[in-house]
Design a binder for these strands. Structure first.
Length: 482
RNA sequence: CGGGGCGUGGCGCAGUCGGCUAGCGCGCUGCGUUUGGGACGCAGAGGUCGUCGGUUCAAGUCCGACCGCCCCGACCA
């Protein structure tokens, strides 16, 4: 059971974050540094993420499959940039069955290489294309500094891997899946995101172009919440993924990969949470409604429970996920706080007065003011009232997150303005030549701000790179990031 | 890997200049009273004080080494 309150966000944001995660029982620290135990409530939240994405993957023609955890070390080395990028964070198995292995096995940090190997065998003809596969898996990256959900050494994710006959098709796939992520983030997680292309420095090791969705957290820091990569023919060449085309010519495939991880759970925590704890969007919430029966004695209890059961049954029939908190040893006040900590979107209180008047007291988690958050709904029609209200709460959380984000997005044209905006903690959209040198300088001048992306939705234009003054065609977002 | 902090019942902490039976709050168990915003009383259970070594008549406390965790930076989903 969660208890007492969390460190306020204004006092210490990262302590608030870890407090909320532990008190809401999303996750716990593991015996091994940098690893976490995902508890049932946190795992259900992840399952919500998973089903929202999986549904969309299937709808766009993808199938799930599973590839092995262990990858021969030599596979990683086949793509030069890929090894270089991942070498520092590999976990390597050197012994098995009490003997030293002839070839070390890498615990997958991502699966482009094993999957590329399989695709080389599977693909012979243009008729075999496209291959559209996703896998749900765990991966391991030896991170120096970790944080629950945001960066753990082992994490759960999905990784999509596709192979296509043409560059155009692969490019379309890359952007299609970026849109799938954005659609999921906005409509399911209620997190407004910016879709864009990563700078060369921030690009995935081995990709031609990387795209991401970028979200603003409650402390205004940026979080890369999902990525989609156009891998060009880099992996096709490294793994010999070739097909015989209509014109009887042997050609290399064009591949993509895209991933979204348990980090999304951290994003939901930080995009919506407040000083009372989590605030979960109804689409993802493990429990959309918690019913709290109110009674003073056995007589009242037996008067109240039939109504509770009736209301709950109606809601469940309407497809609402309801949890009944009938713990006898706790007072209602304790339960209210407990479920607010856990972010349940709507609380239904049913007591003697409600039984008498035929009402249910509904309290919204998305509204801070207690009086405004509460309304008395007639029991009749509750199966319509509640889903409608959940829809409103979903929209309201997205609205609040969007308003917050938009209040902290700034367009700048001079380097002085740029530095002032970053210094103030906001995001700056500025003309940028895309070079590593400029990014490094910005990082040094601002105490760590990095380019987030060149947003896809930007007015065509031309301007001077804020650092070099060079004429460039695109602006990029810069911010401090997780 | 650099900087900071911390290891004492499940959790959060106190423990003074080394001293006698290691304490407090929360939580937990039982009983009773409570219950529309974090209830209360009574009675209980629960500890090799992170590990190893040293100093001492005596170590949670002093010294040394090690281990671990958290936070802040560089690197990364």
């Amino acid at each position: 059971m969660s208890s007492q309150s969390v460190t306020p966000r204004s006092v210490d944001y990262s302590r608030w974050y870890t407090d909320v995660i532990q008190k809401a029982e999303l996750a716990d620290y593991a015996p091994v540094r940098g690893c976490m135990i995902i508890r049932p409530y946190g795992y259900e939240l992840w399952e919500g993420v998973r089903s929202g994405l999986d549904r969309r993957f299937k709808a766009t023609g993808h199938q799930n499959a599973y590839f092995p955890l262990f990858i021969p070390m030599s596979f990683l080395q086949k793509e030069a940039e890929h090894v270089e990028g991942f070498a520092p964070e590999l976990a390597v198995v050197t012994h098995g069955g009490g003997k030293e292995l002839e070839e070390p096995l890498v615990v997958r940090p991502t699966s482009e290489t094993v999957i590329g190997h399989a695709y080389a065998n599977w693909i012979q003809s243009y008729r075999d294309l496209p291959v559209l596969i996703n896998q749900w898996a765990n991966v391991v990256r030896w991170e120096l500094r970790t944080r629950l959900f945001l960066r753990t050494m082992e994490f759960l994710w999905q990784e999509g891997h596709t192979a296509h006959a043409t560059y155009e098709e692969a490019h379309e796939e890359t952007l299609r899946m970026l849109d799938v992520y954005a659609d999921f983030a906005i409509n399911d997680a209620a997190i407004p995101v910016i879709r864009g292309r990563k700078s060369d420095q921030e690009r995935f090791a081995g990709a031609v172009y990387s795209y991401s969705i970028e979200a603003m957290m409650g402390d205004r820091r940026a979080l890369q919440a999902g990525t989609s990569h156009n891998l060009g023919q880099n992996f096709a060449k490294a793994f010999d993924i070739k097909y015989l085309d209509r014109d009887n010519e042997l050609k290399y495939c064009w591949t993509t990969s895209w991933g979204l991880s348990t980090r999304m759970v951290g994003a939901v925590v930080m995009a919506h949470g407040d000083d009372k704890g989590l605030r979960l969007p109804p689409v993802l919430a493990p429990y959309q409604v918690v019913a709290v029966p109110i009674y003073r004695d056995d007589a009242e209890r037996s008067a109240v429970m039939p109504t509770v059961e009736k209301v709950v049954a109606e809601l469940r029939d309407a497809g609402v996920r309801v949890h009944v908190d009938d713990r006898a040893e706790l007072t209602p006040g304790f339960k209210f706080n407990d479920w607010e900590m856990r972010g349940v979107p709507l609380r239904a209180e049913i007591g003697p007065k409600d039984v008498e008047k035929g009402t249910v007291a509904l309290v919204r988690r998305d509204i801070d003011d207690r009086k405004q958050a509460k309304l008395f709904a007639p029991q009749a029609g509750i199966a319509q009232t509640v889903p409608a209200l959940l829809g409103e709460i979903q929209a309201s959380l997205l609205g609040q997150a969007t308003a917050f984000r938009d209040a902290h997005l700034r367009v700048v044209d001079t380097y002085d303005d740029f530095k002032a905006v970053i210094e103030a903690g906001d995001w700056a959209l500025a003309y940028y030549d895309g070079s590593a040198a400029v990014e490094d300088q910005i990082k040094a001048d601002t105490g760590g701000a990095s380019s987030r992306c060149f947003p896809l939705d930007q007015e065509p234009g031309e301007g001077a790179c804020i650092v070099t003054g060079k004429k460039v065609a695109e602006r990029a977002w810069f911010a401090r990031a997780y």
